[in-house]
Simulated assay, not measured.
Amino acid sequence: MEMRERRRPQFRLLLLLLLCGGCPPAGGCNETRMLEKLPLCGKAFADMMRTLDAWKRCNLSEFIVYYESFTNCTEVETNVVGCYWPNPLAQGFISGVHRQFFANCTVDRTHWEDPPDEVLIPLIAVPVLLTVAMAGLVVWRSKRPDQLL
């Protein structure tokens, strides 16, 4: 069931491309039309995001379906006017939507720092010394094959 749900947007994208002519027009990218169509995707995404409580807007699992729909919309609209996706203009539009909805979402990152030298030196020295000792034992043992340990 879950796999079928994931394939559905790609199927819709393919279906939309086939319904609107299959391939992008041969005339090339019509950036003006693209910039006229992309705000429709943004408006639909904004309408969907307004249904969420403000505190849920930074939790990806709460709006991932809306965001996938938004992404598919921008891809379809960009391809319909003969442009490739993503492109710098579409990315600029998507970045604007990100700034509008996710500017207050901060990521708490753990600040990593090295342990103190008193801990770090033994953590490095012990494996190195054990490796040297084991190599020495193997060499010593290989020179005396007739004796047991």
Rank of each mutant, 00 (worst) to 15 (best):
T74P: 05
E113P: 06
R141I: 12
V138A: 12
D108Q: 13
G92V: 01
P88L: 02
C83F: 02
E68T: 14
V76P: 02
P88Q: 04
R141D: 13
A125D: 04
T71V: 03
W85Q: 01
R141V: 13
S69W: 03
M134A: 15
W55P: 00
P122S: 04
C105E: 08
V76H: 14
C105T: 11
L137T: 05
L89Q: 06
T131I: 03
V97D: 04
P86T: 05
N59Q: 14
R144C: 11
V119N: 00
D117K: 04
Y67G: 00
I121T: 05
R109K: 12
C73L: 04
R144V: 10
V138R: 00
S61N: 11
Q100E: 15
N79A: 13
Y66N: 14
L123P: 00
D114A: 12
G136P: 05
L89V: 03
S61K: 15
N72P: 02
K143R: 08
V128P: 02
L130K: 01
L129I: 09
F63K: 03
S61L: 12
L137R: 00
P88N: 04
V80Y: 13
K56M: 12
T71A: 07
A103S: 13
S142H: 07
C73A: 09
L120I: 08
A133D: 07
L130N: 10
A125Q: 10
G82K: 02
P115I: 13
S69M: 06
N72I: 00
V76M: 13
C73I: 01
F101G: 04
F63T: 14
T71P: 01
N59S: 13
L129Y: 09
V126P: 03
C58I: 11
T71E: 11
N87W: 04
Q100P: 02
T74I: 04
I64S: 12
L120K: 10
P115A: 09
G136L: 14
C105R: 04
A54M: 08
K143D: 05
V138I: 15
A103P: 00
E75T: 02
Y84S: 13
N87R: 06
S61Y: 08
I121K: 00
N104W: 12
C73K: 08
N87Q: 05
L52A: 07
Y84D: 05
V76W: 14
N59W: 07
P122L: 02
G92L: 02
A54T: 05
V139I: 14
E77A: 11
H98R: 15
V126S: 07
A125M: 10
C73Q: 07
V80L: 15
T78V: 05
Q100A: 13
I94L: 07
L89D: 01
R144A: 12
V107I: 13
L130G: 12
C58M: 04
H111L: 14
A54H: 06
S95V: 08
